[in-house]
């Protein structure tokens, strides 16, 4: 399934899509596969597979800890592609979330080719805006990959238009100014940003950064096409005593959130 089909399906059901993130390789490569599959079974529509990076500058302490663990365990870009392949085999679209340097190092064209071959749907690039580098877009287009760029509350209207024009699949709207991590409240900035983004594109708009429970998911589902949850899932993994417990805990949260996006 492509990300577009997943968002359409959710829309047809009168709900928002649920997007779930975990970094590949934490606590092990197989452990992350098990947890991501459990997420899909429990109702996550689109999976974000994090590519671990040493300097994740828009991630808060929760994701940093898991990513550090994945790197210490020796997770490689090839491992990440293996995780994508295993997740895509469930039928859910899998997109990679990656900072630019590991992709640039692998080679934009080579990564696009190998990700497509692994069944991956696209890439979210948190530190790459469409105007930053000429290497990524042509490579992604050639292999039919979604290119998901971020828009932020501080983006000007011109930049939002420029960004969504380069997006494919969906647009990622960061609900607050800040780093990843759970927050107590959904910010007002999110709905404003979603309307500003919608004014420039027909693509689905997913909202992320800070969503932690079903109540918040429902609030966001009322105005956005997708709800992205990362740190809350990662926290479940960090707090679990072992891999099976982590997967079970992730599935439990996914179930609650899937209820949330249907509540609106």
């Amino acid at each position: 399934m492509t990300t577009s089909v997943a968002f359409e399906k959710a829309r047809a059901e009168g709900r928002a899509a649920l997007v779930g993130y975990l970094p590949a390789g934490y606590p092990s490569v197989d452990g992350s596969i098990t947890a991501l599959r459990a997420m899909v079974q429990a109702g996550v529509d689109v999976v974000e597979v994090g590519l671990p990076y040493s300097d994740p500058l828009i991630d808060g302490p929760v994701i940093q800890r898991a990513v550090d663990g994945a790197l210490r365990a020796g997770t490689t870009t090839t491992d990440v592609l293996r995780v994508v392949e295993a997740v895509a085999a469930t039928g859910a679209p899998a997109v990679v979330m990656s900072y630019w340097n590991p992709l640039g190092r692998y080679g934009a064209a080579a990564f696009a080719r190998d990700l497509a071959a692994a069944g991956g749907s696209g890439v979210i690039t948190p530190d790459l805006t469409p105007d930053a580098d000429d290497a990524w877009l042509p490579a992604a287009r050639e292999h039919g990959l979604d290119t998901v760029f971020l828009v932020a509350p501080s983006s000007t209207d011109e930049r939002i238009a420029m960004t969504t024009a380069s997006c494919r699949g969906f647009v990622y709207a960061t609900s607050v100014m800040g780093v990843t991590g759970t927050r107590d409240q959904v910010s007002d900035a999110a709905s404003v940003l979603v309307s500003r983004t919608r004014a420039t594109t027909e693509l689905p708009v997913a909202v992320g950064l800070g969503v932690s429970d079903a109540g918040q998911a429902a609030e966001i589902a009322a105005f956005a096409d997708g709800v992205v949850v990362g740190s809350a899932f990662v926290r479940r993994m960090l707090e679990a005593p072992d891999e099976p417990a982590g997967a079970a805990s992730v599935a439990e949260l996914a179930g609650e959130l899937a209820g949330g996006v249907r509540r609106r």
């Binding site: 630019w100 530190d127 580098d133 501080s154 960004t163 960061t174």
Partner: peptide
Amino acid sequence: GGRYVPEALVAA
């Protein structure tokens, strides 16, 4: 050089 940053920082 260039500017490889989160969109949130571009305005600043």
